[in-house]
Nucleic acid binder design. Structure first.
Length: 577
RNA sequence: GCACCGAUGGUCUAGCGGUUAUGAUAUCAGCCUUCCAAGCUGAAUACCCGGGUUCGAUUCCCGGUCGGUGCACCA
């Protein structure tokens, strides 16, 4: 953890990250982003928006972080993650408490943990592995629970992922996108998981930020991503299931080939794996410390056909998952359709209408109604569900709530006609790239962190990507006295007016100020010296090479704009110093 | 949640049953300074929280919080 310690020390010193609630002793799994950290995070999120919202055309939505119980009943988070657990005091193995008890006796479902503890004590139920004594039963649900409104009538949960909000809004989103697939929606926001014992510092948080995209696609066309050509030849470091099983290496493979060979299940999934690679490198993840690992069949959620994690190498922590890209199929929408009883399918028109024979039954409800009263509705439904040949009889026998009802053929008409079927209703599949912003932010810091020896002194420098660095440019008078200070302040103001995040600093020697900005990751330092007063030129210093060029102060805003857009080295501009 | 270890200025640290609680670095003010943590002067800032033992606790004991390590957990 040595590297982590050094990065975290810098993060605390320079105002990137620190423990939350420090004056009250803190709480594990919670961290604050300080001035530079919050700015860096926002810039990473903005880069993400540039890829997903601007690039892919997926609009961003924002839904409450608290959800009503039904959402998480449908998603499986309530039932699946509210298990009573018990730990063996001897071998420390954990078990489902109710399962252990059920091996010995019949018990009803839904017993409270106190009741289960009592039963275990009473019947001296022991650890099935080592026969050691069991501890008290405790509830195990990763969701934070709360009550909506006064009293305890309406349960609410802090969302454990942002995804559910986008599934729940599906009918409105479908209308917004004018009822056509495919379309995508994104959300950047906080999610909450009440981890039992978060470790690994900022890697495992109880409150964290996710950036997720849900791409709704016709399952028939998962192999026809409209923009696949743009990524087809990109080589990705893939570590598929077979390679993992055989302890094989991570192999670079072109995206197109990965789909053709079936390494990645379909074009849509592969496209977002590729887009993830582009994004991560763009915000400053070292490609040499990045790989894509396929989920093993056994670790995949039962509904997911294929799932790939982007993992980064962090020193002392190993390979850490920072993005998951999953084909969730129609699982989520189907679950919400069932629980909410709202139709979440999309009408997909056929290219040519299909001619289909259809039987239309018209019951004579004027007679059936008064005669059968309360059962009339069910009789109508039963008649309409009958096959044509069953209706061609003098009388029809129906089973209504276990009772036989005989309907004379005079009580309904039926005719079979050929009708046009113009399309079908399909529940879309969902391809979901899910990004852990906090982990990405820390990884960016660690991958940018560098120490080097300059003239016998250690230099710490954050080699952040120019576009995500919190401060874009520092303006420094060579000496802290007039007329340099006044001129520098003026230049700083001009750059602020141009929209840049500018730091003006005249405290201490010039060397010290360079180093301060190196630690903050500021890519450029503009220095105002006596030549500036004479001829209006300044020096611009590159953080990484420490090289300087001399350019006219008037052109600074334009120069910065070009440096940020093109990513070209500073050395190509102005006169070398 | 269990076991072991730790917690001292912003940061990194020395140390002790009674100290004016080290040192470095960072910060602020001033002097000096014509490009990479220079120098001088001064200032401000700390014993994680709660109980106990004791004349006296930052120091010893107990509990908690936070952090580290191992186990468990991480859909």
């Amino acid at each position: 953890m040595e590297k982590y310690d050094r990065v975290f020390e810098l993060a605390k010193n320079r105002g990137f990250i620190w423990p939350a609630f420090e004056i009250y002793g803190g709480a594990s799994g919670f961290y604050d982003y300080g001035p530079l950290g919050a700015t860096l995070k926002r810039k990473i999120e903005d880069a993400w928006r540039r890829f997903y919202c601007v690039g892919e055309g997926f609009y961003e939505i924002e839904v409450p972080t608290i959800g009503v119980e039904a959402i998480f009943e449908a998603s499986g988070h309530v039932g699946g993650f509210a298990d009573p657990m018990v730990t063996c005091q001897q071998c420390k193995e954990s078990f489902r408490a109710d399962h252990i008890v059920k091996e010995t006796m019949e018990i009803p479902d839904g017993l409270k943990k106190e009741q289960l503890t009592a039963i275990i004590k009473e019947h001296d139920i022991r650890c099935p592995e080592c026969k050691g004594p069991l501890g008290d039963v405790y509830d195990f649900n990763l969701m934070f629970q709360t009550w909506i409104g006064p009293g305890q009538k309406k349960k609410g949960y802090m969302r454990p992922e942002t995804a559910q909000g986008m599934f729940v809004d599906f009918p409105r989103l479908l209308r917004f996108y004018r009822e056509k697939l495919p379309f995508g929606v994104t959300q950047i926001g906080k999610s909450y998981r009440n981890e039992i014992s978060p470790r690994q510092g900022v890697i495992r948080l109880r409150e964290f930020t996710q950036a997720e995209a849900e791409v709704f696609v016709n399952p028939q066309f998962k192999n026809q991503h409209p923009n696949f050509g743009a990524v087809r030849d990109l080589a990705l470091p893939l570590w598929d299931e077979n390679a993992q099983l055989s302890n094989g290496p991570v192999t670079p493979m072109r995206v197109g080939e990965a789909v053709e060979r079936g390494t990645i299940a379909n074009q849509y999934l592969a496209y977002y794996v590729a887009l993830t690679h582009k994004f991560l490198v763009w915000v400053g993840i070292d490609p040499a410390r990045l790989r894509f690992r396929q989920h093993m069949r056994t670790e995949r959620a039962h509904y997911a056909t294929d799932c790939w994690d982007a993992e980064v190498m962090l020193e002392g922590l190993g390979w850490i998952e920072i993005v998951g890209i999953a084909d969730r199929t129609s699982y989520d929408l189907t679950a919400h359709q069932k629980r909410s009883e709202v139709d979440l399918s999309v009408f997909i028109p056929f290219e040519k209408p299909l001619k289909v024979k259809k039987t239309v039954v018209t019951p004579d409800m004027k007679t059936i109604g008064p005669k059968f009263k309360g059962k009339a509705g069910k009789i109508m439904a039963a008649l309409k569900a009958m096959k044509p040949e069953e209706l061609d009889r003098p009388e029809v026998r129906l089973d209504i709530d276990g009772e036989e009802v005989v309907i004379d053929s005079s009580l309904f008409k039926h005719e079979t006609a050929e009708v046009d079927v113009n399309g079908e209703n399909v529940i879309p599949h969902v391809v979901e790239p899910s990004y852990g912003i906090d982990r990405i932010l820390y990884s960016v810091l660690e991958h940018a962190y560098d120490e080097e020896i300059v003239q016998g002194e250690e230099r710490i420098v954050l080699r952040l990507n120019r576009t995500v660095a919190p401060i874009t440019v520092a303006v420094l008078p060579l000496l802290s006295r007039e007329p340099l200070t006044g001129r520098a302040a003026g230049i700083a103001q001009t750059l602020k007016n141009a929209g840049y995040f500018v730091e003006y600093d005249d405290s201490g020697t010039i060397g010290k100020r360079y180093r301060r900005n190196d630690e903050a990751g500021t890519p450029f330092c503009v220095t105002v010296d006596f030549d500036t007063i004479e001829d209006g030129t300044v020096t611009v210093r590159d953080r990484d090479s420490m090289a300087q060029v001399r350019v006219p102060a008037d052109g600074l805003a334009g120069l910065l704009s070009e440096l940020l857009c093109t990513g070209r080295p500073l050395e190509g501009y102005g006169k070398k110093v």
